[in-house]
Computed example of a mutant assay.
Amino acid sequence: MIPAVRRLLRQPSAVRFAVLLLLVAACGVLLLVVPRPDPSDLPRLAGRLGPYAPVAAVLGGALLLVALVPRTFVTLASGAIFGPLEGAGYALGAALIAAAIGFTVGRLLGREFVAERVRGRLARLDGWFARQSVFGVITVRLLPIAGFGLVSYGYGTTGARILPFLAGSVIAAAPTAFGYAALGAAVTSPGDVNWYAAAPSALGLIASVVLIRRWWRAERQRRAAATVAS
């Protein structure tokens, strides 16, 4: 496997970018044709794994996210297996690993191709990604533009830095992780669910409104400054 990866990384940037597009397309096709398991059946599977169940949940959840499975399903399943609090924690661990994998794959396969071809407004957009802080990543993550895995691949093709990207990805995923994990736990143990655990899910909507408003104000100030300078 490793020699094949090394040969791939030595290929021209256009070939690597084509491989990235094929990889994303293949994940999308599999997502459509492979049936998803019933979350209520998952606790029995976790019981067979015993003490290895948390590790399997984190690593398996990360692979599912990389394969473009929606984070909502992964978090619901984690909550159904482990309960609202532990399930949310394991789902966030999976999100962190998946974000790192997706970013790295996008960086290795697509960054050089994109950097060689961005011009004009696209170049300014790429520069914006390169200057992004954790706050900027949170803003993009909370916008309903694409799934978790696809955004991770896309970020890797930009000039973004990996540490702010990972931190922003986890922070943005945290509010809804507790809510979806609580809903997942309701599938298997409705009497044991602490519904206050679902409250953080509302923070996602509130945070989105606040972030969009702050971005819009910053954009207006930038345009006003550009107008004065010209």
Rank of each mutant, 00 (worst) to 15 (best):
P3A: 11
V5T: 13
R7S: 14
R7L: 05
P12K: 04
V19H: 05
L20A: 09
L23Q: 06
A25K: 08
P35H: 05
D38Q: 12
A46H: 13
Y52M: 15
A53C: 08
V58I: 10
A62D: 01
A67S: 13
L68A: 02
V74D: 00
L76P: 01
A77Y: 03
P84C: 13
G87A: 05
Y90S: 02
A91C: 03
A99Q: 03
F103E: 06
F103S: 04
F103D: 05
F103C: 07
G106F: 09
G106V: 07
L108N: 13
F113W: 15
V118D: 12
L122M: 11
Q132V: 02
V134H: 09
V140R: 02
P144Y: 09
I145P: 07
I145C: 06
G147T: 01
V151P: 00
G154D: 04
T158L: 09
G168V: 02
S169I: 06
V170E: 04
I171G: 00
A174W: 02
A177S: 14
Y180I: 01
Y180A: 01
A182C: 02
A182L: 08
G184M: 10
A186C: 05
G191R: 04
N194M: 11
A199F: 09
A202H: 06
G204L: 12
A207Q: 09
W215R: 13
R217M: 09
A218V: 03
R223E: 12
V228W: 04
S230I: 13
